[in-house]
Write a protein that binds this DNA or RNA. Structure first.
Lengths: 137, 137
DNA sequence: TATCATAACGTAATGATTACGATTTGTAAA
DNA sequence: TTTACAAATCGTAATCATTACGTTATGATA
């Protein structure tokens, strides 16, 4: 999702446009991969002297809820990245830099049949390793 | 993995067979699904008066390392279940009772090609929802 | 520019997990 | 069987990510 798109989405939903919020969007726009709350705090501390956990987590949850960000759990820590809204897909995630590559394969079609009497609510398919850049570093 | 198998594996590796360790195995053998450290503590407290976090987590890690248990992260908490050693497969996991169903489909073959220059180290494919039992409860 | 609800601050609380010194207990050798 | 000792457990404190909250600041609307 693009920054302007996200800002308009927030406005439409009645949320205020603050400096923190714009900077958080800028961070994830630039990051192009999964980042933690701690990563975000480090970044914002360059600009602001004193960032509250409240601000960090409230906005991460907000962005996640309205679909600006998507999240996953890696090594016991929540990680966030800009949401790819265009179509359903999965991700390769680099263990080193957190950057992602879209994977078009989704095995759910095949799986549905095997779970006839089950109620499927969600699924997760992620591939972990090193991206070409980190592999040769 | 069966309990006796696990105990022999521990002996072979030079680990001692203690009451706690046997009871932990019994718990996961009976559980037949994903359980948290807290779940395990509740169970062990019925038998022992005073179970140390040290004992819980040390043994969970040990069992996970030697392949007696396998683990996944659900709602920010590590969950463990008896390891299925026989062949590669994935799991449907019930959001209610934690019980699992094996899924034979694995999409990795298809994915390899799309990640030619990447180093693949691991992958995760899990399906979440309600099992037939919990669905009708 | 005044108003007011929302956002942010600073900090304390929570919950899972890890760490550690003291004590207990399997195990293997005497 | 007893002894010896490393490994296992205990009790509790520390850590780390996240959540909660009373107070203060600020964006948006009139």
């Amino acid at each position: 999702m693009k920054i302007n798109e996200a800002i308009n989405l927030l406005k439409d939903k009645g949320y205020k446009t603050t400096g923190r919020r714009k900077d958080i969007l800028a961070y994830f726009d630039e990051a192009d991969g999964y980042r933690t709350a701690k990563d975000l705090i480090s970044y914002l501390e360059e600009t602001y002297d004193g960032i509250s956990f409240d601000t960090i987590y409230r906005n991460l949850h907000l962005y996640n809820d309205v679909g600006i960000l998507e999240s996953t759990e890696l090594n016991g820590e929540k990680h966030f990245r800009m949401n790819c809204t265009h179509h359903h897909h999965h991700h390769f995630i680099c263990n080193d830099c957190g950057k992602t590559k879209e994977i078009e394969v989704c095995p759910m079609d095949e799986v549905q049949q095997a779970l006839a009497n089950y109620s499927i609510e969600d699924h997760k398919f992620e591939i972990y390793g090193l991206c070409p850049m980190c592999k040769h570093a």
